[in-house]
Every structure is written in structure tokens, then in C-alpha cells.
Design a protein around this nucleic acid. Sequence first.
DNA 1: AGCGTGACGTATA
DNA 2: TTATACGCCACGC
Length: 112
Amino acid sequence: MKNDFYQRVYAVVAQIPFGRVTSYGAIARFLGAAKSSRMVGYALKNSLSLQNLPAHRVLNRQGLLTGKHYFGGSTVMQDLLEGEGLKVVKDQVQGFEQHFWDPAEHLNPNQF
DNA sequence: AGCGTGACGTATA
DNA sequence: TTATACGCCACGC
């Protein structure tokens, strides 16, 4: 069911620890929709006005803040990340892999 | 109903 | 290594 996919995306994003980040692809893969990473971003776009999800902790594979435009302001997303101890330069998280958080290694697939 | 678009990612050149 | 091409599929028009 497609709505479940959205719910699962929200559930995963909600579990991202403070100061850690992940990627759309990682989430998509974890949910079994590896080839539909775009849908993850789409789901998050919906989630923005739905609930308090740390959507700013979800970046693309390069650690780029590709969706900062959707946070209303222009530096809101960056400020949020920097507020969590991350460094952002040119819309890109420095040491991305260092702060990367893989759902598959920290969450139990069985609860999804 | 068909077509273009997009918070992505991988494959090719 | 950078630049394009393409697959994916929900949504809006």
C-alpha cells in the first residue's frame, strides 16, 4: 500500500538521531524501494506541513541540501544542521560520511 | 487519459 | 573526474 510507504518514511526519519544525517537512497533501500528514491523526497515534501519530522537530516547521496528551498526560508535548513553540530558549506554537509546514519544498521527491519 | 516534472541514484561516455 | 542519460513512480495540469 502506498500510504504505508509514506508512513514508513516518516517513521524512519523520525528515528534519525540528533546530529546525524542520512540519504534518500538509504531510506528507500531500507524500505525495499531502492529504485524509487525520488518517492522518499516526495514523501518528505508532504511531511513538511504534516508533522515535526527532522527532514533537514535527510540529504542526497552527496550530502547536499537539495531541498532547502522547501523550508520556507533560504538558510533555515542549514541553520538547523549547524545547530546540531554539523558544518555546512555551499549547501553541502562537510564530513557527510562521518555523520552518516544508515537505517539498515540501526533500525529493526521487522518493525516495518 | 496522457504528459511533464521532481528533496534521487546508478550506469555510461 | 565531470557530464549526460535513463529508470522510478506519485502528482498536478
